[in-house]
Design a protein around this nucleic acid. Structure first.
Length: 504
RNA sequence: GCGGGUGUAGCUCAGUGGUAGAGCGUCACGUUGCCAACGUGAAUGUCGUGAGUUCGAAUCUCAUCACCCGCUCCA
């Protein structure tokens, strides 16, 4: 087994054991692509989302123009008018039924397959499928059918009929020879490959009530562009941010929580004049990279990658994927995309809705459709990256596994221990604990040996442990122990809050 | 979606047809008193799920679900 796989298994095991991440509905055998956060995981993820909101929305860095960056937030519904997804391009084009060929591993659009059937079909005859309007596979199918009918090509048109694949009952598929194979029965039944989750709005479940769980949070922002402009006194350039759940029916969920079917996004749509767009794009790219770095995703594992040429959407001028080297893959995997989207989205919604979404810039005396820069981050992917980055094995320690979370992200900020559970030490430690927990998530532990308690906190990633001992009774000092070094300092008990404040 | 592997206690795993196990963790009591210490005791299992074969299935067969690995896919 690869070393990296072993590391990933150690991480998943610790995450389960300590209550970071559980498989969804585990007692019923789980469900593919869905995950739950446990008591420590929910704090960690919440800290990540809070840090993002604080650092990007409430107090973003100074902009590339030297001015404060205007940011506001929204929280949109998961289900929107289905026309939103028609405008965005998520419906249509990708909802065709597909058939797979088990033998050739090819995948075809079912409505593009034609089947040649012997005219004198006795109920057992082989049928030959080809890709409609594809001369090569058509010729191959006709030739094979001629051979099957024991006649010489060219095949007489009276000897066979042709039907679209979708008009042939699925029960007969075992008699169909696929376009790129020699034997019958390799085609699967047609399946929908639309990755959007469908649901129904209202109690009557018919086609008029079909709706979708959003596959991204971005469209709620675009749909509310005008509302935000009209209600919040923002002026272009400005950004709208949203954190929320999104859903995609991933064909193949994999790699722990990385490719989940239900996931949370942290998205910004930043609206600016096209003239300034590249400047803002570069600024957001750098800002986002710095954000990850400042919270501990430093070094070689964080890899910005510029999309080039064909990879870029046709409307996009630039896009950088911020990627991370996870232990489960050789190639870095995307945490966030910082995309220059032109005015594609607003334009699409303007056309579909018939509503004017242009913006009048009073400084420029110009009416235009703003260009959008979109830093779109995965909250669960970031969480997994921070977990992976924090996971450390130090064989020289009595308890080798520890989580080196950045103090801002640590689920528990501090722990308070009486060195022993007697001699009045718990009574001394208790008020300190009560003091700390008013400000930060903290734990009190008087059970078992002191070493075990430190070790437990190391696994949870708690950066600081305060221990009340015999000397506390004499001079009111406690020891503070650092998670990463194991080193200890003595500080006055009255300085503990101050000590934490300086570091959190 | 295809192929391979795995599934037994919270975690790691042993258990090849005949009473459900170990280590670690958890809890209690005692001891100790700054780094998963020691002793004693305890709790914890739909053996992934469902069918089948059998007098009898964790074990054999089939199906199914989940996870892992390699392809594939990822608008």
């Amino acid at each position: 087994m690869a070393k990296s796989t072993e590391k990933m298994e150690k991480i998943t095991s610790l995450c389960k054991r300590r209550g970071f991440i559980f498989q969804s509905s585990e007692i019923y055998g789980g469900i593919g692509g869905f995950w739950d956060y446990g008591p420590l995981g929910v704090e960690l993820k919440r800290n990540i989302k809070d840090a993002w909101w604080r650092d990007m929305v409430l107090n973003p860095p100074i902009g590339p123009d030297g001015k404060q960056v205007q940011m506001v937030g929204v929280d949109c519904s998961l289900i929107m008018n289905p026309k939103v997804w028609e405008a965005s391009g998520h419906v249509g084009g990708f909802s065709d039924p597909m058939v797979d060929c088990k033998e050739s591993k090819s995948r075809y659009r079912a409505d593009q397959i034609t089947v040649a059937i012997p005219a004198n079909d006795d109920g057992n005859a082989q049928m030959y499928a080809y890709v409609s309007e594809d001369e090569e596979t058509q010729a191959k199918a006709h030739k094979a059918l001629a051979k099957y009918l024991k006649t010489k090509p060219p095949l007489d048109s009276s000897l066979f009929i042709e039907k679209p694949l979708l008009e042939i009952p699925v029960e007969l598929y075992n008699r169909i020879v696929g376009p790129h194979v020699k034997d019958a029965g390799t085609l699967t039944e047609p399946r929908e490959f639309n990755l959007m989750f469908q649901t129904f709005v209202g109690a009557l479940q018919d086609s008029s009530s079909v709706a979708y769980l959003r596959p991204e949070t971005a469209q709620g922002i675009f749909a509310n562009f005008k509302n935000v402009c009209d209600s919040s006194r923002v002026k272009v350039p400005f950004g709208i941010a949203q954190i929320g759940k999104a859903f995609r029916n991933e064909i193949n969920p994999r790699n722990y929580t990385f490719r989940s079917r239900e996931f949370e996004q942290m998205e910004i749509e930043f609206f600016c004049h096209d003239d300034d767009a590249m400047m803002w794009w570069e600024w957001w790219r750098d800002t986002r990279i710095n954000w990850y770095t400042s919270l501990g995703l430093a070094g070689e594992n964080l890899v910005p990658r510029n999309q080039e040429g064909d990879e870029l959407a046709h409307y996009s001028k630039a896009c950088t994927d911020i990627e991370y080297r996870f232990p489960f893959a050789d190639e870095p995997q995307e945490l966030e995309g910082v995309a220059h989207r032109g005015c594609y989205d607003l334009n699409a919604h303007q056309e579909k809705s018939g509503k004017d979404l242009t913006y009048f810039d009073t400084d420029r005396k110009e009416r235009f459709l703003p260009t959008v820069i979109e830093p779109s981050a995965g909250a669960d992917r970031s969480t997994l990256a921070f977990i992976t980055e924090a996971y450390t094995v130090d064989e020289s320690r009595p308890s080798p596994e520890l989580m080196k979370f950045h103090p801002r992200l640590a689920p528990i900020k501090a722990a308070v221990f009486p060195l022993v559970a007697k001699d009045g030490l718990p009574e001394l430690a208790e008020p300190l604990y009560q003091d700390i927990r008013k400000r930060w998530p903290a734990q009190f532990d008087a059970k078992q040996s002191i070493g075990k308690r430190y070790a437990r906190m190391d696994e949870a990633g708690t950066p600081y442990c305060f221990t009340v001992d015999g000397q506390t009774k004499e001079d009111n000092t406690v020891t503070v122990r650092d998670r990463d070094t194991g080193g200890q300092d003595r500080i006055d008990m009255s300085r503990v809050i101050e000590y934490l404040e300086e570091r959190l």
